[in-house]
Design a protein around this nucleic acid. Structure first.
Lengths: 303, 303
DNA sequence: TAAAAATACTCCATAGGTATTTTAT
DNA sequence: ATAAAATACCTATGGAGTATTTTTA
């Protein structure tokens, strides 16, 4: 019969695609991990990973086993958590994912606020695109994610925290640099820099530009992050739209940031597996975040 | 860190409430199980079961751990199943629950039919009331259940197999013994014997009797099973309603069974956890059952 | 006092370590 | 030629056994 340690090794190999790294991640020697994985393959009567000296990859059978193994390990981890909580009822160990267009503008104030409110919550944050966060939630590699909701996905629950308006940004010398909200007709003079594929905000930006008949900058500009876009805008390569939380940073970087007369926004919230037992903790985090929200990201609802 | 064997022992103790029996269920000696359980309690830093020489019971902490442990073990079992299926793709190991008013009239023909269609399916059947079947599904102790649907329960999926009409039954000498369907006005002359509490069919019978203004026999008669009712009806102690599948048996026992002019029926179907991966196998079982359904339980839909 | 769990002890299977070899690019 | 996994071999932890004692209803 399989045991959890073998499963741990398998999952580590699946994650690292390298026996040596997987072994050190498990704090054992490479031969130990090799032997145990081989044993697991014997028990299950099939190859779980294909290995050459250059590459390791998981077989289809292996993928099936890995998926189940992750869940079994998550349950074992949950049991240990139950015990830890008993020892100290306030301690939590929560792994959350955050999308890249939110993470750098959310964490700097959210993490201290959470630490102040719940000193014994130990948050581990992982930054990635929505699609990858969803995959990691599914694979029990994350407890929850903060992203643009709704995310239609079977078996997930969610909690909307706030509505984050989009703002217009250009550099100080730009013809559109002015105080006060910017009207739709003005926008049409702008050439918008948009994010690369993968960012959910890219699609939202394109939708807004399309609706307002705004010109999108050509393919020479590939901005992989909002920070890159901010720097490009500052260098006068075009204008952009920014999510509310990024406004303060953009202004500090010397950009002119204006509200949109034709309001546009994304909803930001938590998402987690329906089977996750810490939904009440997520709600606590959400409350703290909402309570400390800057003005540029207006609260609309907490539902 | 916990391991699966310790969890197996804990679950066995929770199930048997007796160390010796739990140990033999796990094929180990009683001291071995005692030691390992003690170790688990040390790891988790709290008592999981309270033991005296007369009784064993699981603490609240223990119950929490047991719930998680069952799921971890179910995952490990699923991994072994993946391997077994690979070795022989047709083999299945399915544990199903069936309600008592269905089980004795369904299995005698359903099991042979399933065996003929899928010789490598190994079914284990467990008979109990709806509420207990639901609890066992939740606790990963059953893969699926056949019962009266719908069952409102978060996280479950279901498949309706057929609509099973209720029939009227009395003994041959009863004034209502006659061929052909029985009208509502005639029914009011009957005194109905109903099942004890716990049977979902009891509630259905009471609803029907109430709607038709039929008299229910007093509290002296407590029929714990349909078979008991059949025998009581045969002894002239009253009339009853029978589910379609029981009709043939009742007639063979010498009862007069008549259709109801005012049709009344229950829907029978499969229910399983949404997370259960064998839903396609359940569908196969359902197909076989529906294909072999006797006439007294009319097919209405398979949805 | 008798049933049941805990303790004492012994044993050996195996998880894990180090050193080395094989393999494939 | 070299990085990486497999093999060989050794050690020691701890899982499991039998025999016995302790506990408590």
């Amino acid at each position: 019969m399989v045991n959890l340690q073998e499963l741990r090794y398998l999952v580590a190999v699946a994650d690292h695609r390298h026996f040596g790294k997987a072994a050190s991640a498990c704090c054992v020697s490479q031969p130990t991990l090799s032997m145990q994985l081989k044993k697991l393959e014997d028990i299950l009567g099939g190859q779980l990973v294909e290995r050459t000296n250059k590459a390791v990859h998981v077989t289809p059978l292996g993928e099936m086993v890995v998926a189940r193994a992750r869940q079994a390990l998550a349950e074992a981890e949950a049991i240990m958590d139950i015990a830890r909580r008993r020892a100290d009822p306030d301690v939590r160990n929560i792994e959350i994912g955050v999308i890249p267009t939110l993470c750098p503008y959310l964490l700097p104030w959210a993490i201290p606020a959470i630490r102040a409110a719940y000193p014994k919550f130990k948050l581990t944050v992982y930054e990635d695109f929505t699609a990858n966060l969803i995959a990691r939630l599914d694979a029990y590699q994350l407890d929850a994610a903060i992203l643009s909701v709704p995310v239609p996905h079977r078996g997930f629950e969610s909690l909307t925290m706030f509505e984050e308006p989009f703002w217009f940004a250009c550099n100080q010398g730009h013809p559109l640099a002015a105080p006060g909200p910017i009207a739709g007709v003005e926008l049409r003079q702008a050439e918008m820099l948009v994010l690369t594929e993968g960012h959910c905000m890219r699609d939202q930006m394109l939708t807004i530009c399309d609706a307002s008949q705004v010109q999108v900058a050509g393919g020479d500009f590939r901005a992989t992050s909002l920070e890159t876009i901010v720097q490009m805008v500052k260098a006068g390569m075009g204008c952009t739209l920014l999510p509310g939380l990024a406004v303060r940073h953009a202004r500090e970087s010397g950009l002119c940031v204006r509200a949109l007369e034709a309001k546009a926004a994304r909803r930001v919230g938590f998402v987690w597996r329906g089977s996750y037992l810490g939904a009440d903790d997520i709600a606590k985090l959400a409350d703290v975040i909402v309570a400390h929200l800057p003005e540029t990201a207006q609260i609309r609802s907490l539902a």
